[in-house]
Amino acid sequence: MKKNDHQNSKMVRKTKDIISIIFLSLVSLLALTFCIGLLLSNADLRRRIEAKTSELDAIENEGYYTTARAEQMVESAVAETQSETLESVRNTFKEELGSKGSLSAIRELFPDDLIVASNGEYRFYPIDENMDRHMFKAEDFRESSNGKLDYIGPDESVQPKFGIMVSRYNGEINFENVKSAGVDFVMVRAGLRGSSEDASLVEDDFFRQDINGALAAGLQVGVYFDSSAINTMEAEEEAEFVLSLIAPYEVTYPIAIMIEASDSPDSRTINLETDDYSKIIDAYCSKIQDAGYKPMVYGNILSYVEYIDLGIQQKYPVWFSFSGDRPYYPYSFDMWEYTRNGYIYGINGGANFIMCLTDYSNSEETDD
């Protein structure tokens, strides 16, 4: 009995040893597997890093960059572009100044603004996109040897009339010669109002001589009055004065009011605002229109941007003065005085040339 117990005990110990050996072997195998896994994972990670590094090198060689590098390159490009742009503007401005003068150069650089020089400074006025615009370009006009501009643009409906603007400053005029030189119409100064304390109405010294001569030569005639009214009552007085002067004559072209504000501190119009001018112009033009004539507003570019508001420019035909080979007035217009130094047979010295886009010789054009 004791012998069997001893044998059984010996077998149990052997079994336990075998199990321990198997367990330790399994643990060792697992540890080895884990180590092999780590080594493989590390090798795979190294391969991935090398692949990414190689990929980044390839990308950079092909022109692609990291975010930081890209930002650095953008900043550098912006700085370089700004420098190049500034240099380009300087060179352009230098060329424009050399050929056209400062004001013309500035106007070329800012085509979306109307720019005038006044009191030693340049003033910028944005062009109103809601206003009707003319479509003329510089290449639409060709200057003749005597200073006359001819329309050579593509619009066949544009058939401008050629006119001149006359006053006492032109002296004696041979209107027969003027007519033979191709002039279609004449705008005659009827008179003026004194711009200082003496605000009396004065007939132009040559008004009757000029209007009689022009009509006798078969030219169409319009008139203008050099206003310095400071209120609507004076504007109506000026209109009545003009109507009395033209009563004996056949006037088919417009009866214009001239608005050219003075910068002189002694001028009686020095304190007028845009609203004041609007009321003055409206009062004058209403009188002219009620009498059966076509009213018109004459002014230079400064007048049209500082004194004559857009509502008036839409209500009455525009006659503007600007010396040049293209109209530096962006909106629709009726007449353009483009030079004061033209040469015309029959007038001594410089003549004021006008282009008119409306044929007022047709009586229907003068109707309301």
Rank of each mutant, 00 (worst) to 15 (best):
S104I: 01
D132E: 08
D359T: 05
E176M: 09
R47M: 13
I59F: 12
S244G: 14
V74N: 13
D204Y: 04
V74G: 08
T85Q: 11
I230A: 05
V158C: 06
S54W: 03
E129R: 10
S99W: 13
S144N: 15
K148H: 15
P248E: 14
F241E: 05
E238D: 15
L243F: 08
S102L: 12
N174C: 04
Y304D: 08
D140W: 00
K94V: 10
I344S: 01
P248L: 09
E80M: 14
S286R: 07
F34H: 06
G342Q: 01
E95R: 04
D150Q: 06
D276Q: 06
M187K: 02
T358Q: 03
K287C: 08
E337Q: 12
E306K: 11
R123H: 12
V89F: 07
I301V: 15
A291R: 03
K10F: 07
D210L: 05
S286Y: 04
D282M: 03
F136C: 09
G98K: 07
N271C: 13
E236K: 10
S363A: 14
D368T: 12
A235T: 04
G171V: 01
G342H: 00
L219M: 10
Y307V: 03
R107M: 06
I308H: 01
T67W: 14
G147F: 03
G171A: 01
Q7K: 14
I301H: 04
A247V: 07
S20I: 12
I21S: 11
N300G: 07
Y151I: 02
L192I: 07
P330G: 10
E156H: 12
R142F: 04
E234P: 08
F333C: 04
E240L: 04
F23N: 05
N119G: 15
G171M: 00
K161M: 06
Y277W: 10
G311D: 12
V12N: 13
A256M: 09
G153T: 05
I36D: 05
P154V: 07
M296R: 00
G350W: 00
I255G: 02
N146C: 05
S262Y: 06
M1W: 14
V318A: 04
L39R: 11
M355V: 02
R168A: 13
D150E: 11
I127G: 06
D112S: 12
F23A: 11
L45C: 08
N170L: 02
R208N: 11
A105V: 03
F320W: 05
Y298S: 00
I21M: 08
E143D: 03
R90C: 11
E364M: 09
D276E: 06
A235C: 07
Y331K: 05
P330C: 10
Y125V: 08
P254F: 00
L39S: 12
E143W: 05
K148D: 10
T67F: 15
E240W: 00
G182D: 08
Y65I: 06
A283K: 00
M73V: 07
Y169L: 09
P330D: 09
A229W: 04
E237P: 09
D57H: 08
K279G: 09
I127F: 02
S76T: 14
S99P: 07
I344Y: 00
D226C: 15
E236D: 07
Q159N: 10
